[in-house]
Design a protein around this nucleic acid. Sequence first.
DNA 1: CCATAGATCGGCT
DNA 2: GCCGATCTATGGC
Length: 203
Amino acid sequence: MARLTRRFFDRPALRVAPELLGCRLIHQRGARGDWLEARIVEVEAYAGEGEDPASHAHRGPTPRCASMFGPPGRFYIYRCMGLHFCVNLVCGAKGQGGAVLLRAACAVRGLPTMARRRGGRSGRELANGPGKLAQAFGITARHDGCDAIAGALRVEAARERPARILVSGRVGIRHATERPWRFFVADDPSVSRTSLNRLARQP
DNA sequence: CCATAGATCGGCT
DNA sequence: GCCGATCTATGGC
Protein backbone atom coordinates (compact mmCIF):
# COMPACT_ATOMS: atom_id res chain seq x y z
CA MET A 1 0.00 0.00 0.00
CA ALA A 2 1.33 3.44 -0.96
CA ARG A 3 -1.22 5.75 0.53
CA LEU A 4 -1.16 9.48 -0.13
CA THR A 5 -1.66 11.91 2.75
CA ARG A 6 -4.34 14.52 3.34
CA ARG A 7 -1.49 17.01 3.39
CA PHE A 8 -0.53 16.02 -0.17
CA PHE A 9 -3.88 17.35 -1.39
CA ASP A 10 -3.95 20.31 1.01
CA ARG A 11 -1.98 22.47 -1.44
CA PRO A 12 -2.91 24.55 -4.51
CA ALA A 13 -4.16 22.39 -7.40
CA LEU A 14 -1.39 23.77 -9.60
CA ARG A 15 1.22 22.28 -7.26
CA VAL A 16 -0.54 18.95 -6.80
CA ALA A 17 -1.32 18.36 -10.49
CA PRO A 18 2.16 17.46 -11.84
CA GLU A 19 2.83 15.25 -8.81
CA LEU A 20 -0.22 13.14 -9.61
CA LEU A 21 1.46 11.97 -12.82
CA GLY A 22 2.67 8.42 -12.24
CA CYS A 23 0.25 7.90 -9.33
CA ARG A 24 -2.22 5.00 -9.51
CA LEU A 25 -5.99 5.25 -9.75
CA ILE A 26 -7.37 2.12 -8.09
CA HIS A 27 -10.87 0.68 -7.82
CA GLN A 28 -11.00 -2.28 -5.47
CA ARG A 29 -14.38 -3.96 -5.61
CA GLY A 30 -14.77 -6.18 -2.56
CA ALA A 31 -12.38 -8.81 -1.21
CA ARG A 32 -12.98 -11.12 -4.15
CA GLY A 33 -13.94 -8.50 -6.70
CA ASP A 34 -11.99 -6.93 -9.52
CA TRP A 35 -8.96 -4.80 -8.87
CA LEU A 36 -8.80 -2.01 -11.44
CA GLU A 37 -5.58 -0.02 -11.61
CA ALA A 38 -4.20 2.58 -14.01
CA ARG A 39 -1.16 4.86 -14.06
CA ILE A 40 -2.16 8.53 -14.36
CA VAL A 41 -0.50 10.17 -17.39
CA GLU A 42 -2.46 13.41 -17.94
CA VAL A 43 -4.08 15.96 -15.59
CA GLU A 44 -5.34 19.54 -15.52
CA ALA A 45 -5.34 22.01 -12.61
CA TYR A 46 -8.39 24.16 -11.82
CA ALA A 47 -8.13 26.89 -9.18
CA GLY A 48 -10.80 27.83 -6.66
CA GLU A 49 -13.35 30.57 -6.21
CA GLY A 50 -12.54 33.86 -7.89
CA GLU A 51 -9.17 32.80 -9.29
CA ASP A 52 -9.81 30.86 -12.48
CA PRO A 53 -12.70 31.68 -14.87
CA ALA A 54 -12.51 28.18 -16.38
CA SER A 55 -13.05 26.47 -13.02
CA HIS A 56 -16.50 25.31 -11.93
CA ALA A 57 -15.65 26.83 -8.55
CA HIS A 58 -15.03 30.28 -10.01
CA ARG A 59 -18.35 31.78 -8.93
CA GLY A 60 -18.60 29.93 -5.66
CA PRO A 61 -20.48 26.77 -4.62
CA THR A 62 -23.42 25.43 -6.64
CA PRO A 63 -25.24 22.10 -6.16
CA ARG A 64 -23.09 20.51 -8.85
CA CYS A 65 -19.67 21.63 -7.63
CA ALA A 66 -20.40 21.57 -3.88
CA SER A 67 -17.78 18.88 -3.23
CA MET A 68 -15.07 21.12 -4.68
CA PHE A 69 -15.54 23.21 -1.55
CA GLY A 70 -15.30 20.24 0.79
CA PRO A 71 -12.10 18.91 2.38
CA PRO A 72 -9.11 18.05 0.15
CA GLY A 73 -8.40 14.48 -0.86
CA ARG A 74 -11.95 13.68 -1.98
CA PHE A 75 -13.43 13.21 -5.41
CA TYR A 76 -15.37 15.80 -7.34
CA ILE A 77 -17.31 13.97 -10.05
CA TYR A 78 -19.57 15.77 -12.50
CA ARG A 79 -21.46 14.99 -15.68
CA CYS A 80 -19.96 16.56 -18.75
CA MET A 81 -21.92 17.51 -21.89
CA GLY A 82 -24.89 15.71 -20.43
CA LEU A 83 -23.32 12.34 -21.12
CA HIS A 84 -19.89 11.54 -19.71
CA PHE A 85 -18.43 11.79 -16.22
CA CYS A 86 -15.22 13.60 -15.30
CA VAL A 87 -13.07 12.66 -12.28
CA ASN A 88 -11.40 15.36 -10.17
CA LEU A 89 -9.45 15.42 -6.90
CA VAL A 90 -10.24 18.27 -4.50
CA CYS A 91 -7.14 20.28 -3.55
CA GLY A 92 -6.33 23.08 -1.14
CA ALA A 93 -7.94 23.96 2.17
CA LYS A 94 -11.63 23.23 2.73
CA GLY A 95 -13.73 26.02 1.26
CA GLN A 96 -11.24 27.08 -1.46
CA GLY A 97 -12.61 25.05 -4.34
CA GLY A 98 -9.46 23.92 -6.17
CA ALA A 99 -9.32 20.57 -8.01
CA VAL A 100 -7.26 18.49 -10.43
CA LEU A 101 -9.02 16.80 -13.37
CA LEU A 102 -7.76 13.31 -14.25
CA ARG A 103 -7.65 13.35 -18.06
CA ALA A 104 -5.96 10.08 -19.03
CA ALA A 105 -4.34 6.94 -17.62
CA CYS A 106 -2.59 3.77 -18.74
CA ALA A 107 -4.47 0.67 -17.58
CA VAL A 108 -2.22 -1.86 -15.80
CA ARG A 109 -4.63 -4.19 -13.99
CA GLY A 110 -8.20 -5.34 -14.53
CA LEU A 111 -8.00 -4.86 -18.29
CA PRO A 112 -10.83 -7.29 -19.19
CA THR A 113 -13.35 -5.44 -17.03
CA MET A 114 -12.28 -2.10 -18.45
CA ALA A 115 -12.42 -3.43 -22.00
CA ARG A 116 -15.97 -4.70 -21.47
CA ARG A 117 -17.10 -1.34 -20.09
CA ARG A 118 -15.37 0.41 -22.98
CA GLY A 119 -17.29 -1.55 -25.58
CA GLY A 120 -14.51 -4.00 -26.43
CA ARG A 121 -11.69 -1.48 -26.88
CA SER A 122 -8.20 -2.22 -25.61
CA GLY A 123 -4.75 -0.79 -24.97
CA ARG A 124 -4.43 2.98 -24.99
CA GLU A 125 -8.12 3.32 -25.95
CA LEU A 126 -9.23 2.18 -22.50
CA ALA A 127 -8.65 5.49 -20.72
CA ASN A 128 -7.05 8.08 -23.06
CA GLY A 129 -9.59 10.80 -22.24
CA PRO A 130 -11.54 12.06 -19.21
CA GLY A 131 -14.87 10.44 -20.08
CA LYS A 132 -13.19 7.22 -21.19
CA LEU A 133 -11.25 6.97 -17.92
CA ALA A 134 -14.47 7.33 -15.91
CA GLN A 135 -16.24 4.75 -18.09
CA ALA A 136 -13.42 2.18 -17.79
CA PHE A 137 -13.50 2.47 -13.98
CA GLY A 138 -17.29 2.57 -13.72
CA ILE A 139 -17.13 5.96 -12.01
CA THR A 140 -20.40 7.91 -11.81
CA ALA A 141 -21.92 10.71 -9.75
CA ARG A 142 -22.36 8.31 -6.84
CA HIS A 143 -18.60 8.67 -6.22
CA ASP A 144 -18.92 12.45 -5.88
CA GLY A 145 -17.55 13.52 -2.49
CA CYS A 146 -16.07 10.10 -1.66
CA ASP A 147 -12.69 9.81 0.05
CA ALA A 148 -9.85 9.36 -2.47
CA ILE A 149 -7.15 8.39 0.01
CA ALA A 150 -8.42 5.22 1.67
CA GLY A 151 -11.71 4.41 -0.08
CA ALA A 152 -12.42 1.49 -2.43
CA LEU A 153 -11.90 4.01 -5.22
CA ARG A 154 -8.68 5.88 -4.46
CA VAL A 155 -5.37 7.27 -5.68
CA GLU A 156 -2.07 5.78 -4.50
CA ALA A 157 1.44 7.22 -4.66
CA ALA A 158 3.66 6.78 -7.71
CA ARG A 159 6.20 3.96 -7.66
CA GLU A 160 8.41 5.89 -10.06
CA ARG A 161 8.35 9.48 -11.14
CA PRO A 162 7.76 9.92 -14.90
CA ALA A 163 10.96 10.57 -16.85
CA ARG A 164 9.72 13.68 -18.66
CA ILE A 165 6.70 15.90 -17.99
CA LEU A 166 5.31 18.47 -20.45
CA VAL A 167 2.85 21.38 -19.97
CA SER A 168 0.26 22.81 -22.33
CA GLY A 169 -2.95 24.80 -22.26
CA ARG A 170 -6.06 23.07 -20.95
CA VAL A 171 -8.22 21.23 -23.46
CA GLY A 172 -11.42 22.94 -24.58
CA ILE A 173 -10.91 26.15 -22.57
CA ARG A 174 -11.62 29.50 -24.24
CA HIS A 175 -8.53 31.39 -25.27
CA ALA A 176 -9.24 34.36 -22.98
CA THR A 177 -9.21 32.17 -19.88
CA GLU A 178 -6.45 29.82 -20.99
CA ARG A 179 -3.54 28.94 -18.73
CA PRO A 180 -0.69 26.40 -19.16
CA TRP A 181 -2.11 24.10 -16.52
CA ARG A 182 -2.35 20.79 -18.38
CA PHE A 183 0.43 18.35 -17.42
CA PHE A 184 1.19 15.06 -19.14
CA VAL A 185 3.87 12.39 -19.45
CA ALA A 186 5.99 12.99 -22.55
CA ASP A 187 5.75 10.34 -25.28
CA ASP A 188 3.18 8.25 -23.40
CA PRO A 189 0.74 6.55 -25.83
CA SER A 190 -2.13 6.80 -23.31
CA VAL A 191 -2.13 10.62 -23.34
CA SER A 192 -5.18 12.02 -25.13
CA ARG A 193 -4.51 13.13 -28.70
CA THR A 194 -4.88 16.86 -29.20
CA SER A 195 -3.15 19.55 -31.25
CA LEU A 196 -1.95 21.06 -27.94
CA ASN A 197 0.52 18.18 -27.57
CA ARG A 198 2.82 19.53 -30.28
CA LEU A 199 2.96 22.96 -28.65
CA ALA A 200 3.72 21.63 -25.18
CA ARG A 201 6.83 22.79 -23.34
CA GLN A 202 8.97 21.84 -20.36
CA PRO A 203 7.39 22.93 -17.03
C1' DC B 1 -6.26 11.51 -42.03
C1' DC B 2 -10.03 15.56 -40.77
C1' DA B 3 -14.69 17.66 -39.86
C1' DT B 4 -19.07 17.39 -38.00
C1' DA B 5 -23.54 15.89 -35.82
C1' DG B 6 -25.73 14.12 -31.96
C1' DA B 7 -26.43 12.56 -27.24
C1' DT B 8 -28.45 15.36 -23.07
C1' DC B 9 -27.65 17.96 -18.03
C1' DG B 10 -26.35 21.96 -14.98
C1' DG B 11 -25.63 26.65 -14.78
C1' DC B 12 -25.74 31.04 -16.44
C1' DT B 13 -25.86 34.88 -20.49
C1' DG C 1 -32.36 29.10 -24.39
C1' DC C 2 -27.54 28.34 -25.03
C1' DC C 3 -23.15 26.67 -24.14
C1' DG C 4 -19.78 23.53 -22.17
C1' DA C 5 -13.31 20.60 -18.49
C1' DT C 6 -16.59 14.88 -24.22
C1' DC C 7 -16.90 10.83 -27.15
C1' DT C 8 -18.45 8.12 -31.01
C1' DA C 9 -20.13 7.25 -35.54
C1' DT C 10 -20.13 8.70 -40.00
C1' DG C 11 -18.79 10.73 -44.33
C1' DG C 12 -15.21 13.06 -47.16
C1' DC C 13 -10.35 13.60 -48.89
